Computed example of a mutant assay.
Amino acid sequence: MSHHRTPRRFLCLSALAVACVLTSSSCNAGLLADDVKKEDGGPILLGMAVPQSGSTAEVGPYMSNAAQLAVDEINAKGGVLGRKLKLQVEDEACDPKTATAAANKLVSAGVKVSVGGYCSGATLPTLPIFDRHRIPMIIPAANSSELVDQQLKHVFLINGTGRQQSAAALEWLDKEGAEKVVVLHDNTSYSKDIAVRTEAGLDKTGGPEASGLHTITPGESDYGPAVTSVLKDKPDYVFFTGYYQEGGLLIKQLRQAGYTGKFLGADGLVDPKLAQIAGDAEGVHATMTQTPDTLPQAKGWIAAYKKKFKADPGPYSTQSYDAVRLAAEAIEQAGSTDGAAIVKALEAVDGFQLFSGPLKFTPEHTLSNGGFVILVNNGGRFVLKDNLQ
């Protein structure tokens, strides 16, 4: 016959629990003191998954540097809730598997808010990871409508959506008097979303004619078949909704094949390297939320960025800076790092000033105004062409 002895540790804990019932307030303070001290005294961790490797690695530093600048400025003013902010950056590589690993790493590290997300296709699989752990996401760049179609309450976009970008593209093509438009995408979530919406919006009475929807495979070095198909359709405008690496090759190969029409890209096309890849990107247009050098009010901010990082800020740097500022504001208003409280604070934001203007989220947690403008490549860099007002 065996005898089971109650472990001494259990007896001690039981006695302590009984004592807690008798003196609940003082006991609770004693039991939780270490946890509270750790929570209240340590830094508040923000997580950022952006490209650090792969074909879009050039964009990552623009975003992470700008986010760090915001963290440093907030900390210099005393932090948030009496605590410092800390930024942890992980690689998304514009790849779903890499981004998923990055999200899991950030969750394990204990981030309270995610302020990253560049490629929509890589950001999409991270949504349920952060949502499951009740971690709010303030996404500065990725903007496929699929991101909000899932209706996850922890997801907020501070870049215009694919729906809004498509509307801007259609407005510009109509304004330009385009007659026949070929639309190309690379089959990623962001690119396909904008392309399908734009192609469906063509062929309106008196507007541009849709000349077909074509696809390419990202990462290839020869887009000969796509170029042949485009030339066969004889468009006067080509709208490519993918990223600058493939866009640069398409521009180069289309021109080498004799295409003399105009070229419009989506925001993934906007990068200083486009001209290098294309050989000549003069006159190429793009739909884009404003970049730092197209914002008159960003002059002092650009100087601060250049002083700290010895480099010029690029696409999505202001949005990343604002993502951190917004996260800090929401935590401050919530009076807590609890995810549900932060979500309520974000939903209640009304007039918080971003570079794009005063913020108030729609019920879908998107911007009420996408803020897209038309940029044009001039001398190798994109400058403001039309604000579409």
Rank of each mutant, 00 (worst) to 15 (best):
K37S: 07
A99H: 09
E39W: 08
D233H: 08
E209Q: 07
L375E: 04
T215P: 08
M48W: 00
A169I: 04
E171M: 04
L69R: 00
G380Q: 00
D386Y: 15
E73D: 07
C94L: 05
G265V: 07
S108L: 07
A102G: 11
I138Q: 02
D386Q: 06
G379E: 01
S336R: 10
S336Y: 08
E171R: 04
L85D: 03
S53N: 11
V324C: 02
L11R: 10
K273Q: 14
A76G: 13
V183C: 10
A340C: 03
V71R: 01
K252I: 10
F10Y: 14
K344V: 07
G201V: 04
A348N: 13
A298C: 12
E39S: 11
L22W: 10
T294E: 00
S64I: 05
P125C: 13
K308M: 15
D40A: 12
G219P: 13
G42M: 05
G60E: 05
V89D: 10
S53M: 12
A286F: 13
N387V: 01
H285S: 07
P315T: 13
A67N: 00
N75Y: 10
D35G: 01
I302G: 12
A67T: 00
N378L: 03
G335I: 04
P43R: 02
L31T: 06
E92I: 01
Y223H: 03
Y305M: 04
V50A: 01
A311T: 10
L250C: 10
K234R: 09
L354D: 08
K306W: 05
Q88F: 12
V181Y: 11
E90M: 15
C20P: 02
V148D: 01
K252C: 13
G160Q: 08
I216A: 04
I342D: 11
G339Q: 12
L346S: 11
L22D: 09
A340I: 14
K86I: 02
A195H: 09
G258L: 11
D233S: 15
P272R: 02
D338Q: 06
Q256S: 11
E199D: 14
A70R: 11
G371W: 02
T6P: 07
A226P: 10
G82F: 05
V270Q: 09
M1H: 12
E332L: 06
A286H: 01
K204I: 07
S14D: 08
K204L: 09
D34L: 04
A304N: 15
D267V: 06
P315V: 10
T6V: 15
L124E: 03
V183L: 07
V373W: 03
I374L: 13
T228M: 13
G121H: 09
F382R: 01
H285P: 00
L326N: 03
T56F: 02
I138F: 01
I129S: 00
L147D: 03
V155T: 14
G242S: 05
L213A: 03
R8L: 11
V18I: 09
V107L: 14
A328Y: 09
A303S: 09
A266N: 05
H133R: 13
F239Y: 15
S166C: 04
H154A: 08
A93T: 03
Q164S: 07
L375C: 04
Q253S: 01
V183D: 10
K310E: 14
T188H: 03
K344D: 14
A341Q: 13
F10A: 14
G314Y: 10
D338T: 08
Q68W: 10
V36G: 01
S14A: 15
N143H: 09
E246D: 00
L45A: 11
R134V: 15
S53V: 04
G224T: 15
